[in-house]
Design a protein around this nucleic acid. Structure first.
Lengths: 337, 337
DNA sequence: CTGAAAGCGCTTACAG
DNA sequence: CTGAAAGCGCTTACAG
């Protein structure tokens, strides 16, 4: 049942059909108050009757506003980014903007992707910084003059605007919570990706909490990001070898934390009686892996929505209330500590 | 360090700078063979020097091809869809197309989203059918005349083209595998979403395998999709009550299967000696949850890439080799059965 | 409240 | 191989 009229009605067609000029049609959609009630009604009815759908490409070219926001994400598989994209997309939709998406895990590819995206003349760009951006990428964006917001970023923006939360504070808070439970020998399972400031900030937050409590802050083991759940087991093994009295593990992510919980199950250790585990991210698995992972929810959707708000404010008014915004995180208490 | 020249160089600027006509510039990019080597070289160099980025909005309007593919997905959190999007996006990028993304979980919202998207004049549409599409949605698409491919779909396309795999076959194959392991009492943990043919097809595949083996095919329990991992536990409990000798559980998804494995751990049941579990989807968790979940990999990325291929073939040549394509699935053998 | 006209930055037959 | 000209479907001052 494929068919479809290949020639869509244009604004001129609609104008003729409704017996008005094209510009009145345009006003009916863009500035309804400028046109008389009865005229508008007639135009809108005619539009529905002939199935008129405004051509936003022509609109973009004529108005200089594409109403498209380009989003670059390192990976859709990361549910944090997926949430950010959902928060962003939902917000944009309510404002009549569309999402132009590109996934780029490599910095080199990022430049090419950016080139293509920029050709589309997006009204704004959302950078989700799983990685650092190359100098050339920054130049491309800068030269384009398109407003940008960096997400999952808690420092000063590299470019224009930024939204995120304090990775440091969040890690410190949950580590402090372990201390308050009475644990004295606590390890950190991190990732060995030195170029990622994000992981380092979390680790520093953990270490700060240990120092504040007068505890060892060197029970640190870094696993490759690619290890997935297995990273939790690797960290358990390494840190237990270093400190046999280890009572708990504070993890760089829920994936690693879930891996640690699996390892506890394997060992027959009860959680949290025998061993405690803290996660980071509040992924879906956190709620489901027994006995429930205590973790920090970093509110990805809200980060996305905030990024959208900042961008549209900048696009439509030329200015923003604040170039950096923080989105609150929450510690979600379940039963793993 | 925000700046950026708000006024970007146009093709006319570049033409003037390079001392040629705009149309020669256009040809340098679109039909390089039509222009003399030396001329082309000069134009390209000048373009790089002034940082010219072709305006694809103007290009789209003039040529009638937006080179944008609109993709509608029910949820980005589902890693199957995330993979499909990645496969699609990577392919489109190599072909100079961009991805216009929208997430819609509700059929009603889908219509509004479709309206906006269609206004963008996408060259093609990818529908990822987590749900049925409303009559109105189908009409909208049909009326637009834009080529569409439905993904994760194994029957005849509702609209135009479809790409997927046999949900039935995949489920039957993995269930048959359980039978071959010598299991006699096998249950099905499915989802109670009657409108989803997708779940039903898997269930039928399971039941077919049981019938072929002369085993009971009524050990079926449906859990709400929203139950997540907990669904596995619920199904275990219900089916064990129905058949105390239950030896294995064939699951509608890896999430449910992982939940079943968690429940086995909780019970202290060794897998697969005491109990076997089969998954569906090969999500990240399948490889990581002990002892490793045997499951079916449905090749999401390949589905996305194939969708892209079909669409671009249709867009650029006006026809396709086949309106329906299947992407092979694989059974990934680990240790849960 | 309504409209004629120019223009957004490209592409595309059509000539030369 | 190169170019002048019309046109894609809108929006936007500017008049009336």
């Amino acid at each position: 049942m494929t068919s479809g009229s290949r020639t869509r009605a244009t604004m001129a067609d609609l104008a003729k059909a409704a017996g008005v000029s094209p510009m009145t049609v345009s006003n009916c959609f863009k500035h309804p108050h400028k046109v008389q009630e009865s005229t508008r009604k007639k135009v809108l009815e005619t539009a529905a009757a002939i199935g008129y759908v405004p051509n936003l490409i022509a609109s973009s070219l004529a108005s200089g506003n594409s109403r498209m926001i380009a989003a670059l994400v390192p990976s859709l598989r990361n549910s944090n980014y997926a949430n950010t994209l959902k928060g962003l997309g939902d917000y944009l939709h309510t404002r009549g903007y569309e999402l132009l998406l590109a996934e780029t895990d490599h910095a080199e590819r990022e430049e090419k992707v950016l080139q293509s995206l920029l050709g589309r003349r997006p009204a704004g760009i959302v950078l989700t910084s799983g990685q650092q951006h190359s100098q050339r990428s920054l130049e491309l964006i800068n030269h384009s003059g398109v407003p940008v917001v960096e997400t999952w970023h808690d420092a000063q923006p590299h470019l224009d605007m930024a939204v995120g939360f304090s990775l440091f504070d969040a890690a410190r808070d949950i580590a402090t919570m372990m201390v308050r439970k009475g644990l004295r020998h606590i390890g950190w399972a991190g990732h060995d990706k030195p170029e990622s400031a994000r992981y380092l900030q979390r680790q520093r937050g953990f270490q700060k909490a240990m120092e504040e409590a007068g505890l060892r802050s060197d029970l640190v083991f870094l696993v490759p990001e690619s290890a997935g759940f297995a990273g939790g087991r690797l960290a358990m093994e390494a840190l237990l070898a270093k400190e046999p009295q280890l009572q708990g593990l504070c993890c760089v992510s829920d994936v690693v934390a879930a891996g640690a919980l699996f390892d506890c199950m394997r060992r027959g250790w009860r959680v949290p009686e025998r061993f405690s585990v803290a996660g980071y991210g509040d992924y879906e698995i956190a709620a489901e892996v027994p006995p429930g992972l205590t973790t920090v929810n970093t509110n990805g959707a809200e980060i996305g929505r905030t990024a959208g708000e900042m961008l549209l404010q900048k696009i439509e008014t030329g200015r923003v209330d604040a170039v950096t915004r923080r989105v609150p995180y929450q510690i979600v208490i379940r039963h793993s500590l």
